[in-house]
Design a protein around this nucleic acid. Sequence first.
RNA 1: GCGAUCGUAGCUCAGUUGGUUAGAGCGCCGGUUUGUGGUACCGGAGGUCGAGGGUUCGAACCCCUUCGAUCGCCCCA
Length: 421
Amino acid sequence: MSSKTSAIETPQAIRGTQDIFGPDAEAFGFVVETFERVRKLYRFRRVEMPVFEKTAVFSRSLGETTDVVSKEMYSFEDRGGESLTLRPEFTAGLARAYLTNGWQQYAPVKLATHGPLFRYERPQKGRYRQFHQIDAEIVGAAEPQADVELLVLADQLLKELGIADGVTLQLNTLGDAPSREAWRVALIDYFRAHRAELSEDSQDRLERNPLRILDSKDPRDKPFTADAPKIDNYLSAEAQDFFGRVTAGLDAAGVAWTRAPALVRGLDYYRHTAFEFVTDRLGAQGTVLGGGRYDGLIEALGGPHTPAVGWAAGIERLAMLVGEKGEARAYVIVVAENAEQEVAALRLVSQFRRAGVCAEIVATGSPRKRFDRAKKLNPAALVSLDVRDGAPTRSLRVLEAGFAAADRVSAVFDAFVAEQQ
RNA sequence: GCGAUCGUAGCUCAGUUGGUUAGAGCGCCGGUUUGUGGUACCGGAGGUCGAGGGUUCGAACCCCUUCGAUCGCCCCA
């Protein structure tokens, strides 16, 4: 890519987007593949949904005052003049799909999906404008067992990804609608009395999203958040019982959790169970997986009352915890050390691949350096095709005895030699 | 949206108080050596020092603007 005096300017990538390659891309793929595997163990069904929806799908379900809706959505008019939005999350679109496709017939349904999401935010570590999540939801299930199943799934996923160490499950309940509302009113009353002493951010939150004051990091807010009204005092008997059955289920399934009374969710549709799997290894973006119950969402989209629970996890964040993953190593490399052998090398390498052996060919560049280059790729076996004294020579060298595909490699090689006689 | 740090070859970086044709290692390409060998030596390609403007006799270095990255705030997964 030497552009010297080229007058053409290369367009740059959009801010907050990423091009993922090599070991990082392998880690990304590992997260998705592990999710797919585990999700099948729990019999969650795969869904694919559009990347964009009518704007109302998100504005109605997330809440007009949330930051996501008020300032972070990628919204635009299409050529027909309709306001559309690139999905900032999965749940709203999934609820819409549930309604417009009549998935009530399958209820309760366990659903899983993954893909890109878009939010106009300031990029930083673990936060992008196009980011990716895996997502699991149970729609049409009112029982606490659904919450438990989802949480156990999440727990197993993190364990199978090998990143469960240092990740803790923070659990809270926001109560049912009356509990949540009573608590909310009490919080507003309480914080309003101290309004002038709160941070500017929290004064603002008081109007828009009072629950959020509870997890403010501002030291000026700390003295007040400690003594703020507790959800436990506003929980109805039903809500209390519900939460008790969730925690009992987690204990029975052997999932560790800690109560986080200040844990709230940013989006309006959450009820009852709220949770986050949190790590301290990702700096400010410590939430690795989060979600909760959203019994009110489907009604907000004009559907019948439909209880549901779900969670989402950022693939980039999970991939960062996973670390770099090695790429597939070639079991065998075929080297054409002589121009005359290039065609034969091409034939042999495709025979290896058809036999299911991961293989690579080296047949370009200086013939004298090809063998060295092949060896640097560190294969388990190396086939050299050359011409000595006018006669073709073929050798198979095993550099690592007893590797996985060893038998197949020698079988394919022997057949090739026989064929060339 | 706010604050801070940063931006030199493909990669990791050096570049002294602003001073002649901007460097190293690795990688890449080629030659010699080796000839069953991942060696050693030599050579080469590749940079308008993120971009634009300014100060100056002179800017990679100082100033402004802009783009991008990183780290906080905010938000959230």
